[in-house]
């Protein structure tokens, strides 16, 4: 069954700005490890562009592991949106590129109390993101 487990947002210097799990019963990493994993991803992404056999590579878009897929969308500002999903979950690239990026622009960046590159603590962003992901899960047949 397709599923979105986690959404992470990493700023342009590798700091974790946002992380949220959406399904109960998945094994969680603790807060410190999530911070470290975010910066690991940031540096791995930089190395992958350097080792690229083709010039002008922009970085990893999809990591396929045994039990999950990790999709990454990097905006022009260097901010990365990551979604950890069940393998073969459809349309995640578009979800990150169009829906979640829009939510970030609308409810985090346009929030006057939000400071750029800091942790996202915006109620509207949380609510809309929750609404979007639970909507998808309901459509895929998860008990909500």
């Amino acid at each position: 069954m397709p599923a979105i487990y986690t959404i992470l947002i990493i700023n342009k210097s590798g700091g974790l700005m946002f992380d949220r799990d959406f399904l109960p019963g998945i094994s969680k990493t603790n807060g410190n490890d999530t911070l470290r994993l975010a910066s690991i991803w940031h540096s791995v992404n930089a190395i992958s562009t350097q080792l690229s056999p083709m010039p002008n590579c922009l970085g990893i878009e999809l990591l396929q592991a045994d039990t999950f897929d990790l999709h990454c969308f990097q905006a022009l500002t260097g901010i990365k949106f990551l979604a950890m999903t069940e393998p073969q979950t459809p349309d995640v690239a578009n979800l990150l590129r169009y829906t979640i990026y829009d939510l970030y622009a609308d409810y985090a960046l346009k929030n006057p109390f939000y400071e750029v590159d800091q942790r996202i603590k915006c109620e509207l962003f949380d609510n809309h993101l929750n609404y979007t992901i639970t909507g998808l899960h309901r459509r895929w047949g998860h008990p909500v």
């Binding site: 992958s48 590579c57 922009l58 990893i60 592991a65």
Partner: peptide, 12 residues
């Protein structure tokens, strides 16, 4: 443990 088997970038 869980391991990765591939990653895709825009060019390779």
């Amino acid at each position: 443990s869980c391991s990765f088997h591939s990653f895709t970038t825009d060019l390779y």
